[in-house]
Amino acid sequence: MDDEIQLISDGDGLAVVGDPAAVERFLVSEGLPSEDLGLQRLGSVLSAGAGVAQAGSEIAANSGRWVKLTKESAQLVQKHGLRRSSKTGLSTGALKGSHGQIKGFVEFAKGPGTLLTNPAVLAGAAGIMAQLAMQQAMDEITDYLATIDKKLDDVLRAQQDAVLADMIGVDFVIEEAMTIREQVGRVSEVTWSKIQATTMTIARTQAYALRQLDALAEKTERAAKIGELAKSTKDAELKVQEWLAVLARCFQLQDAIAVLELDRVLDASPDELDRHRLALRAARNNRLDLISRSTEHLMARMDAAAGTANNKVLLHPTNSREVVQSSNHVANTIVDFHGRLGIERDRQSCD
């Protein structure tokens, strides 16, 4: 009997759906690590109507695995020529084979009875994929914060400003909601009501941290003498990682809220799930662009400072060396931060 593997990519991840044994053989043959997609959660997106029982039984019989879209898995999408929908932004298709051996590509439209031809199930699967991608991004930020000598909690608690102090409470509320979600398997109206007011606090804290980074850039830009430049770049070296840590935590909490929000929409208004997923993706990209512009501006000021110092190294060797060292430290810190958030940029250190 032929195996059929159904594939769906949203640009961040790849879902592989089909008979559990066939899915496992396919992933092993391609050498791809994966995690459970959680197809069983899609029962809630099915409303009364013809074919619902069949779709429900297909969900129960099929396995779904999720693969982060890396360079290798992205090549897999290209290799099998998935078809992209301009409406949903999803690339989809099915592969036919026998005992894990791929015979060829088959469009969903040509394969009646295929699980993901059900629009509600496809939207639900895409919603879960978005959640998995954001949860992995959250884990990567957790790893990033763990590498910082000065813990984020220490940074927040040392601040007298009410904006940053409020973040501690928001952190607790969202962590509690994520724990309840993990235990219960859904986001109830009660749980959702607890976190709705947290978004403004996170946005306010993010704006505050961005202003602090902009202030460091402006201070460096205003420095007229090499001594002033050495002081401003040293201040930036001491402070920039703290503010990047605050930004990273804000971004992580915003992703957590989006995960909870998708669960709430899946439960309460499943017909709006696809539009909501796309809206959340656009909002997330906007936040990345905002953070990127601010950090890129600071990096440009550091590069300019290093260039100025190199031009004055003969007259001011000590200060010039300090400026270059601080500038490179700040720039490398920002590059690492960009990598953790998925902001790509190539840079060479100044000598």
Rank of each mutant, 00 (worst) to 15 (best):
D2E: 08
I5R: 13
L7G: 02
D12S: 12
P20R: 12
E24C: 03
L27D: 11
E30C: 04
E35R: 15
D36L: 09
S47C: 03
A48F: 12
V52C: 05
A53T: 04
I59K: 01
R65W: 11
K68Y: 08
K71H: 10
E72H: 14
E72S: 13
V77E: 00
Q78A: 13
G97S: 12
Q101I: 10
L116Y: 10
N118W: 01
A120S: 14
L122M: 12
L132Y: 08
I168A: 10
D171W: 07
V173P: 00
I174C: 06
M200F: 08
M200C: 02
T205N: 01
A209F: 04
Q212F: 02
L216A: 03
T220W: 01
K225C: 03
A230N: 06
T233G: 07
D235E: 15
K239T: 02
W243A: 04
C250L: 05
Q252F: 00
R275D: 15
L278G: 02
A282I: 06
R293I: 01
L298G: 06
R301Q: 15
T308D: 14
V313W: 10
V313L: 14
L315H: 10
T318L: 11
S320F: 09
S326K: 08
S327M: 01
S327H: 01
V330A: 00
A331F: 01
A331Q: 05
H338S: 02
G339W: 07
L341G: 00
R345P: 04
